[in-house]
Computed example of a mutant assay.
Amino acid sequence: MELAVTEYIGLVAGTLTTGAYLPQVWRTWRSKTVDDISLAMYWSMTLGVGLWLVYGIAIRAAAVVIANAVCLVLVASMLRMRIRYGRRAREDAARGQLPPLQ
């Protein structure tokens, strides 16, 4: 199967834009810190990338499907970590504000 130049461009573009999320996912996973990560942004990105994936499937564009499938995993992982670690941080802070037991 021979790919057109435009498919190669799409695959390279998808690899670069999807790969851009890897450092953030890795850092967040290792540090378990989400203080400066926007919950609204990751909800929006997850929904948007999911819709791009559906669009790519509908038009049968391999580059769009592959890039957005991988990207969806990454942004959904960030969303999950943002919710999970953010909740944990709030709970820890609340515990710290309670008076010590005697």
Rank of each mutant, 00 (worst) to 15 (best):
L39W: 12
G14S: 01
E91G: 00
L22H: 12
A62C: 03
T18G: 02
R95Q: 11
V73M: 11
M78S: 11
T17N: 04
A63P: 03
V65Y: 09
A69Y: 08
S31L: 05
A4I: 10
A4G: 08
V5Q: 09
Y21T: 05
P100C: 07
I66F: 03
G96D: 14
D35R: 14
N68Q: 06
L72K: 14
L3M: 14
V64F: 08
G10Q: 10
V25P: 11
A61C: 14
L22R: 11
G56P: 10
S31E: 03
T15G: 00
D36P: 00
L79N: 13
L101V: 06
V25N: 10
L11H: 03
V73L: 15
M81W: 07
A67Q: 01
L3H: 09
V49Q: 07
L51V: 03
V49D: 05
G19N: 12
T33S: 01
T17G: 00
Y8T: 13
A13K: 03
T15Q: 00
V64L: 13
P99R: 05
P99Y: 06
S44L: 12
L79A: 07
M78Y: 08
M81C: 06
L74F: 12
C71A: 01
I59L: 14
R87G: 04
L22W: 08
W43T: 13
V25A: 10
A20S: 12
I66C: 02
D92W: 08
A67H: 02
R87H: 11
L47C: 12
G48V: 00
W43M: 15
I57M: 14
Y85R: 06
S77K: 10
L16P: 02
D92A: 14
P23W: 02
G50M: 13
A76F: 04
R90H: 07
R88Q: 15
L39Y: 13
V64I: 15
L98A: 12
A61H: 12
P100K: 02
S77C: 11
R90D: 06
T15F: 02
V5W: 08
I57W: 13
V25M: 05
A62N: 09
Q24G: 10
E91S: 05
L11F: 06
A62Q: 11
W43P: 11
C71M: 01
V65P: 10
M45Y: 02
Y21E: 06
A89Q: 09
L74R: 10
I83M: 07
I66V: 04
T46W: 14
Y55Q: 12
T17V: 02
G10V: 07
T28Q: 05
R84T: 02
G19E: 13
V65L: 07
T46S: 15
A40M: 07
L47W: 15
A4S: 14
I37F: 09
Y8K: 12
D35G: 08
D35M: 05
G56T: 11
R84N: 06
Q24T: 05
M81T: 08
Y8F: 15
S77N: 13
M78L: 15
G10I: 08
R88V: 02
Y85W: 06
Y21K: 02
Y55H: 14
S31H: 01
I9L: 07
W26P: 09
V25W: 04
V54E: 03
I57F: 15
A40V: 05
R88F: 05
A4L: 14
